[in-house]
């Protein structure tokens, strides 16, 4: 499971798998999407869409409705786009095991091909944000410092300055970003999953998103210059450590000084 998760988080692998799926069901033309004749693409996608619809009816329709129009228990999926489907299903958030304040991350039941098929189905219902391309996800040249500024303006208020996550109202929470892949981060910004607002490419252009991803990736990998990090959540953890650790140590030492030697 761990190995699978690690592979899943790798944006390149995920994208490759997506391509493999498309190749498998639709043929070589699918790769060059913009250049390919529209009709051929339609045929190529159709198989994936059909498979996606089947999976959708099995796993999703009880809440989101037979035609993805939404019900009392689940919002409409028309127009949410492939990116949204990929984010929700490939992190295990959807399908939800039980109704709750928020869909939790859990082990994934679907293969990458299944996810791609469902994404294709939902995308076929109405236009929506597409799954980001490898080029969009390439943050190697992004400016980390600029990403940090944008992160603190747009993300830190919910996900905390160190990306450790934070509480929202009524038991909801903004999850930790410490193990999120570039693709997950990108898709989340693009689609606004659960209660997260949307940060569209129009207000937060691709290069800004890449900068933010670069900053988060840096946070994930960064050493802790001052020693053990205490979760990087600041004063609460420090206070706890002080009372449970430091004060306890000092009381121990004081007792040692007070005990008579034998």
């Amino acid at each position: 499971m761990k190995a699978l998760a690690a592979r899943r988080r790798n944006p390149i692998v995920a994208t490759l798998l997506l391509f493999v799926a498309l190749l498998g069901v639709g043929g070589v033309y699918a790769v060059a999407t913009s250049a390919a004749p529209a009709e051929a693409v339609a045929t190529a996608d159709q198989t994936a869409i059909d498979e996606g619809k089947r999976l959708y009816l099995e796993g999703c329709s009880s809440c989101h409705g037979l035609n993805a129009q939404g019900t009392a228990t689940g919002p409409t999926l028309i127009g949410v786009g492939a990116a949204s489907v990929h984010f929700q299903v490939s992190t295990g958030r959807m399908p939800m095991a039980a109704p709750g304040a928020q869909a939790p991350v859990k082990p994934v039941d679907y293969s990458e091909a299944d996810v791609a098929a469902m994404a294709a189905y939902i995308a076929s219902l109405a236009p929506g944000p597409a799954i980001p391309t490898a080029e969009q996800l390439d943050y190697t040249d992004a400016d980390i410092a600029e990403g940090g500024v944008l992160f603190r303006i747009n993300c830190a208020q919910c996900h905390q300055a160190a990306g450790g996550g934070g509480a929202l109202t009524q038991g909801k929470h903004a999850p930790s970003l410490m193990s999120s892949s570039a693709q997950e981060i990108y898709e989340a910004m693009l689609t606004g999953p659960q209660n997260m607002p949307v940060f569209a490419d129009t207000t937060l252009p691709v290069e800004d998103k890449q900068a933010i991803i670069a900053y988060i990736k840096d946070l994930q990998e960064a050493e802790s210059p001052g020693g053990i990090a205490l979760g990087r959540i600041g004063p609460v953890a420090e206070g706890l450590f002080l009372w449970a650790g430091v004060i306890a140590v000092f009381i121990g030492i004081a007792v040692w000084i007070g005990i008579k030697a034998r």
């Binding site: 603190r152 208020q157 001052g226 205490l230 990087r232 600041g234 004063p235 420090e238």
Partner: peptide
């Protein structure tokens, strides 16, 4: 051995930014 107040993570202060989990010292 133990980090305290990693200010480099919190970033510089500007009055229109905030971090979740903003707390004072104990």
């Amino acid at each position: 051995l133990v980090t305290i107040n990693p200010i480099w993570i919190f970033g510089p202060y500007t009055p229109d930014q905030v971090s979740a989990g903003s707390q004072p010292d104990w």
